[in-house]
Amino acid sequence: MSDLTLKQLADTYQDYFSVEHGININAKAINGPLPSTAALDAAIPPPFLLASNVNSLSGSALRSLNRLGEMAEELANYLQQQARKIDLLLHYVLQQQDNANERFITQSFGASGCSYLANTPLAPLTVLELKLFLDNNDGAVFCYAQVLSCEQQAEKWQIKVVFTRIRDEDRELIVRASLHQQSKLLKQKAEQRQQHSSS
């Protein structure tokens, strides 16, 4: 996926749903063409790789417990507590990768891309190095993206970007995080409707 046109970027942006929610990201414009997949693999900081590996290992370990019968629940609880400790430690390590000078908060995000407000505009097709820090210790993602659009909003600029170089497992991580956030929002709306109808 290199030398994409704006039309191709727009089509890619529609591939997955996005949810309106703020997560911390770091966005840094880089000069030159979109890096290759091999360049992405070489550029991913070790803490991001570690977080990704831990998430997949925890999931597969808990799934295999289903075959153990009645002892599985106690063992699952123990493993979840251990995983929680590791998550907290990883969360701290990942926060050290968060550069305050490059930090923005998303207006929306999904597996195709995200949008955020910035003080300065970026030209469409500009290549960005992105770090996404997902909520609830869901991990973090390092990828490359390109600017789809840049529109003025009041005194800021809304930057919409498409993830153009991203590992499949990281895209899946964002899918899970966005689905989790969407289910939380739907639950909140249902509770609000219930409160209105009972009052």
Rank of each mutant, 00 (worst) to 15 (best):
D170V: 02
Q182H: 15
L185D: 09
D98N: 15
A118D: 14
L128A: 10
S183G: 00
S149Y: 13
A118K: 11
V147L: 11
A145K: 11
Q152E: 09
D170G: 03
E129N: 13
R103N: 09
L132P: 05
V141I: 15
V162Y: 03
Q146P: 08
D98E: 15
D98G: 05
V141F: 04
K131C: 00
N119L: 11
P121K: 10
Y116T: 09
A154K: 13
R165D: 09
N99M: 03
S178W: 08
N101Y: 10
V147C: 00
C143S: 10
Q181P: 02
K184S: 05
Q181S: 01
I174V: 14
V127F: 03
F163S: 07
E155Y: 12
V147D: 08
Q146C: 01
Q158L: 07
P124F: 09
S149P: 11
D138M: 15
L128R: 11
F142I: 13
T120A: 06
D138F: 15
D138Q: 15
S115L: 04
V127I: 08
S108V: 04
I174S: 06
R103P: 07
N99R: 02
N137A: 09
Q188E: 14
V161H: 00
S112H: 10
L134Q: 03
A177N: 05
Y116D: 01
I174E: 05
S112L: 13
L125N: 11
S112F: 12
I105T: 07
Q152L: 01
G110H: 04
Q146I: 02
I159D: 04
L186P: 03
A140H: 13
W157D: 06
G113I: 13
F104N: 04
E155L: 13
A145H: 01
N119S: 14
D138P: 05
T106M: 00
L134M: 06
P124K: 12
F104S: 08
A118N: 15
Y144H: 13
Y116M: 05
N101W: 10
R165V: 05
A145R: 11
D170H: 02
L134T: 00
Q107C: 04
E151K: 15
N136Y: 14
F142V: 14
K160Y: 11
A111C: 12
L117Y: 12
N137L: 04
I174G: 00
K156P: 00
L132M: 07
W157T: 03
E172T: 06
N137Q: 11
C150Q: 12
E102N: 12
L185C: 00
F133Q: 05
L117K: 04
V175M: 10
S178F: 01
F163G: 07
